[in-house]
Amino acid sequence: MNEQIKHHLTDALLMGYSAGALPEAFDLMVATHLSLCDDCRARAESFDAVGGVLLEDNQTEIEMDAPSLADTMAMIKQGAPRPRGPEPTPCKILPAPLSAYAGGDLSKVKWRSIGMGVKQAILATSPEATARLLYIPAGAAVPDHGHRGMELTMVLQGAFSDEVDRFGRGDVEIADEDLEHMPVADIGEDCICLAVTDAPLRFNSLMPRLFQPFFRI
């Protein structure tokens, strides 16, 4: 099992995931965290139960079309639809939902340098929010930055520390516009994170700001 996860998802995020209200990048973050955290998985399933009650108790009078059941039986007889896409490759670092987006295990990730040894790989999701993998060399820092939206960062390998706390595998840091921080990777191991944001980051020094339009960081 993993070392104890200290930093969990909020009820609002878990409810949003259950209700299907999150942008795809945030769904990816939640699904990845739930893959590592039984605690949050149990909470998420309880929010699903709320959805079940609402679905069943909905008072709206809607009828199915007349041949509906027969049509459905005909659909069933055609067999189960094939699952889309390949089965995710098992990976010690990337849980299944994430490896499906990263194209397989860690070796398949297409990193791009964003300076000072830090690398990132943007994952394809719907446009309301961005998901990316971050690679921070052991002991290195991500430039001091603030946030214009909500940013969630979850550690997959190694650990980082910032003004808030130390974050290890499975821990999620939830940052909003009030947080200006400079995460520094632990010295023992390169740090790999999943980061999702629903607005562009803003950097406090000139250089990264110049790069921002090109690298979408």
Partner: peptide
Amino acid sequence: ATWVFTIARNRRIDLIRRQRRPEPED
């Protein structure tokens, strides 16, 4: 009912919002 809800919700995300629905590892 909960199970049916999760299937319907995923179908809604797929169809109406046109995005994938990442699910936790089994």
